[in-house]
Amino acid sequence: MNDRNYIIIGLVVFFALLTFPVWYNLGSASSAPEVVLTEKAKEAKICIEDADFMRREHMQILNNWRDKVVREDKRTYSGKDGKEYDVSLSNTCMDCHSNKADFCDKCHTYTAVDPYCWDCHTYPEVTK
């Protein structure tokens, strides 16, 4: 029956859509982004927590920090090792990680994350 041709066309279109990522990425070898640490960050060796924890939880920490500062006026954070830090994105985080383009943006762009930190905060390159 002539309907079979339509059905085959439909199947082909469906499978083409399903495997779209394969066609789209064809020929482009992609590798995971490597963040660049500034000299200051390298020297410090450790962030406010260990690197693995920071990689997973930094967004939550920043969100809690914002709430703590803006709503409760609590401006000190004590890390796991008991060391105290000033709760501030611009002054604490970006003191070491002053290279937004090579540090923050690398992974954020790779995974389509667009944090709204920069709606209010400026980054060092601009303030300098």
């Binding site: 990522p21 992609s30 997973r56």
Partner: peptide, 24 residues
């Protein structure tokens, strides 16, 4: 939370037929 960058690395490996498990 999981390592999102690692997740994408794995997924990209699958669709570019160069499969690999990220180190972390």
């Amino acid at each position: 939370k999981v390592d999102v960058v690692g997740a994408k690395e794995l997924a990209m490996g699958l669709v570019t037929f160069s499969p690999g498990i990220p180190d972390a």
